[in-house]
Design a protein around this nucleic acid. Structure first.
Lengths: 342, 342
DNA sequence: CATTAAGATTATAATATTATAATTTGTCAA
DNA sequence: TTGACAAATTATAATATTATAATCTTAATG
């Protein structure tokens, strides 16, 4: 038998084991002090806590997770800039924090490959729940999620496809339909529609469909050329305004699928000396912070994105907590906020 | 000896072990196919890949991390809404993704306790690197970070305190000093300053100090009541404008510490029929997307937040890649973008 | 004083991966 | 046909935690 040099003590990494050794107790006891303090006698508990404090020990959640006590929620979101998604993320983050969970964030694009890659990355970390924006497009991704058996909340369009698991969202169809009707009720007859690229984006598709449905019902002719797609920037909004008004001199209102675009368009009107809504009415979507303060104040669709984020997490946590009758589909309400721009 | 029922096969969780069994190979071989494919013969590799594909296996990164191959970067950020932080997060996220890392995001507040709690949470996941916004305030948090030996990048003010490890940022002092000088050069003599609450926020403190320094140098008297703190909303900006102009009829320019505030103030001017910059000049900070499109276009300080995020991650990855001469302090440049609002 | 029970603590095993060391297989030359 | 060497593969051990089962302590009771 080969004798090991006895004095060789490697600088133990800080873990329950090390803390236990210092206190003179078993690792399990340390673990319990952290997760089930009541099962440990007050004196032992005090000594352990002291040692933890003293050593600056932070329990390793990777190991806990492996053992089946994960506290991580994964999420895939579209680009944060200008999109109002930031508020949703904030909602998710706040609720995660409140529940003692951490949030792993991956930015995805609206393409099948990117989506699949993002989901795969997240699954690698074995999150206990996932929150996805917009319906999962690729069949492979769906299969992956399904077989992983992780609870999933999609923050998305309510109508249409069958959800993977749970859904939180609004009916984008309804919102757009309602806004279009609202504009018609105010007397506008030639209503244009501007959005960011709808390809691969459920929500935008539904909004456009809602707009179409309203026009049909109203008996308004719908020239396909009264719609434009632009990037989600203020400049995009301004350009859309220019394009549409050039094409149709008599256009009297434009419904933008995002406040960011609408705000850009309003600035363009100022530049041209056009009165809003006198020369043309502008409506947005999202009710961003600036909307109410804008000059003139922006008529828009108000959706509580922060609340959506919170709800999504809350549903996940409820499910994780063993609540079996968590609602599968939660539709949040919306409001048409009638301000002066339309 | 107690005999176990032989036929009892539990439904093996999907791992390298299970894949290995299915292919008829050792787990290590599967592991290598994933991380060092060159060390496995092409035929074996093909069979393993096939099995992985077929089973929908996603390697468990928790286990890899435990073994010392972590690919997670933790970050603490202030609230995302309205703050321009979204762009930084996007930059970090993009660069993380590019390097094959995942991003764990925790939202923090500018208080010592909250900061410490956030850092503790992140450390629990044993990230291989951390990115923090603003200098770490609490001594306990500093100690925690130091003893964890994780590379840290602070995205923060360059001047002042000693960094924990690496810093990326701009000199907020310089930017504010430069803008104030710029306003003076354009002939404005009574320049107000509006910011969001500076308490606990290094960057804002430095901006205010820069503003003061410029005023002193110019020989302008600095009434303390030419400064206001408001929440970071468009409404906050509007209210600040009202407050300051009511206090000082002759104020001729206001420097806002955020574009969000400046935009709100411009709207208030429109409401009052005040010409910008005729009646009063407005300057912002950040050069948000809307700034250039605003009517009138906003004079502002341009800082490339997206790039800051990218750089922060790149520095971390360089360090992790063994590059020992990674710069400790990186100061990004800035621009005074002179548009029409001032 | 032995017995019982409750309470507190400890031992064991399991989670999935991978660096390292050990072993097997294959090839070529002597 | 064996020895040497390289390539490919496998065995072992280590990472940190915790549910479970097992053990130990203490006090009270008959």
């Amino acid at each position: 038998m080969i004798e090991k040099p006895a004095g060789e003590k490697k600088p133990q990494r800080l873990g329950v084991r090390e803390i236990a050794k210092r206190v003179g107790v078993a690792p399990m006891t340390v673990s319990r002090v952290l997760s089930n303090p009541d099962m440990v006698s007050p004196e032992t508990r005090a000594r352990v806590l002291e040692a933890i404090e003293q050593a600056g020990f932070v329990p390793n959640r990777l190991a806990s997770s492996m053992r089946g006590n994960g506290r991580m929620i994964g999420t895939v979101v579209p680009p944060l800039i200008n999109s109002g998604i930031a508020e949703q993320v904030q909602g998710m983050s706040d609720q995660c924090h409140e529940g003692g969970y951490s949030m792993l964030l991956v930015q995805g694009e609206f393409t099948q490959e990117a989506e699949e890659r993002s989901i795969r990355t997240l699954l690698g970390w074995r999150p206990v729940g996932m929150i996805l924006q917009s319906f999962v497009q690729s069949e492979a991704a769906r299969a992956l999620l399904q077989s992983s058996a992780v609870p999933v909340v999609e923050i998305s369009e309510i109508k249409g496809r069958k959800p993977i698991d749970m859904v939180v969202g609004v009916s984008n169809f309804e919102t757009a339909y309602a806004m279009t009707m609202h504009l018609a009720a105010k007397g506008y007859k030639r209503i244009g529609f501007v959005s960011t690229p709808v390809h691969g984006n459920d929500r935008l598709q539904q909004r456009r469909t809602g707009y179409h449905a309203a026009l049909n019902e109203l008996g308004f002719t719908n020239h396909g050329d009264m719609e434009v797609e632009v990037p989600i920037t203020a400049q995009g909004g301004a350009e859309a305004l220019v394009t549409l008004t050039a094409r149709h001199k008599d256009i009297d209102a434009i419904f933008f699928s995002s406040d960011t675009l609408a705000v850009g368009a309003v600035q363009e009107c100022h530049r041209r000396g056009w009165v809003v809504p006198g020369r043309i009415a502008i409506a947005g979507y999202g009710d961003m912070d600036l909307a109410a303060q804008l000059y003139p104040p922006l008529t828009t669709v108000k959706v509580n994105r922060y609340e959506m984020g919170r709800r999504a997490v809350r549903q996940l946590l409820a499910r994780l907590g063993g609540d079996t009758k968590v609602p599968t589909i939660t539709s949040l309400g919306f409001e048409i906020v009638d301000r002066e721009s339309a």
